[in-house]
């Protein structure tokens, strides 16, 4: 008897699995399959208790369900939505990884060029000019890191991440323009003045963002 019970279970489960075979996974699908399976098994047991043979009982129970195509379509739509979400997440993931790599390469390129030009016998102001690559690279990495979703944190919204990148970029650019204008004029006060303007703007924006931020930690 226990054996026969198992074959009914398996056949009903197979029928349900086949029915939803080409439907993308979702919590709703998982729940509906369990609900249908439980109820069909019970119906088969009812038919059998009225003296119907196992094969016949399963066949009758399935037929009496009626046309389940509407439900299958419902589930297919839900499954496609989650598949779309997964594609979307992996796309932004790829974009932000590309941004981090490009940012690191830009910074390295800037450092190497500056080092190279410093060692060549040319005016220092030209050498410092290549530092702009370091500024751009830092801003790009800032943006990419903030828009990357991690296992603990959700991705930051893109506008906010861009503002953070701008703030960091402004601070870096302030330092950069301080160095270049300092070299260009040979006057330290000009260097400080040039730095001050951009750093103040950058720090102001940065503080504003920090103080208005929302919690991005996932509740797991």
């Amino acid at each position: 008897m226990a054996n026969r019970k198992n074959t009914v279970d398996e056949k009903v489960e197979k029928y349900i699995n086949d029915l939803f075979a080409d439907v993308g996974p979702s919590q709703q699908l998982f729940d509906l399959k369990e609900e249908l399976t439980t109820n069909i098994k019970e119906k088969v047991a009812d038919y059998q208790s009225r003296g119907m043979e196992e094969e016949q009982a399963i066949k009758e129970a399935v037929i009496s369900m009626g046309d389940l195509r509407g439900l299958v379509d419902d589930m297919r739509n839900i499954g496609q939505d989650t598949a779309k979400q997964a594609v979307y997440t992996s796309m932004t993931e790829r974009v932000s990884i590309a941004g981090i790599i490009a940012g690191v390469l830009l910074i390295l390129f800037g450092i190497f060029t500056v080092a190279m030009l410093f060692l060549m016998d040319i005016p220092r102001v030209s050498a410092a000019g290549s530092g702009i690559f370091i500024v751009a690279g830092t801003a790009l990495i800032t943006y990419s890191l903030l828009t990357k979703e991690t296992s603990k944190k959700y991705a930051m919204n893109k506008i906010r991440a861009a503002l953070y990148a701008l703030a960091i970029g402004l601070i870096m650019f302030g330092i950069f323009s301080g160095i270049t204008s300092g070299y260009a004029t040979g006057e330290a006060y000009i260097a400080v003045a040039a730095t001050m303007v951009f750093v103040l703007a950058g720090v102001g924006l940065f503080l504003f963002l920090i103080l208005t931020g929302s919690n991005r930690y996932k509740n797991i």
């Binding site: 509906l32 609900e35 249908l36 439980t38 109820n39 019970e42 119906k43 009496s64 369900m65 009626g66 046309d67 389940l68 509407g70 439900l71 419902d74």
Partner: peptide
């Protein structure tokens, strides 16, 4: 009540004269 229980209840209420398909019920 649960899915199959509601289905049986409907048959009973109709004095065994009407069966509402479960496909319709789950939707």
């Amino acid at each position: 009540n649960y899915g199959y229980g509601i289905y049986k209840e409907i048959i009973k209420l109709s004095d065994n004269q009407y069966e509402l398909k479960e496909a319709t019920l789950y939707t």
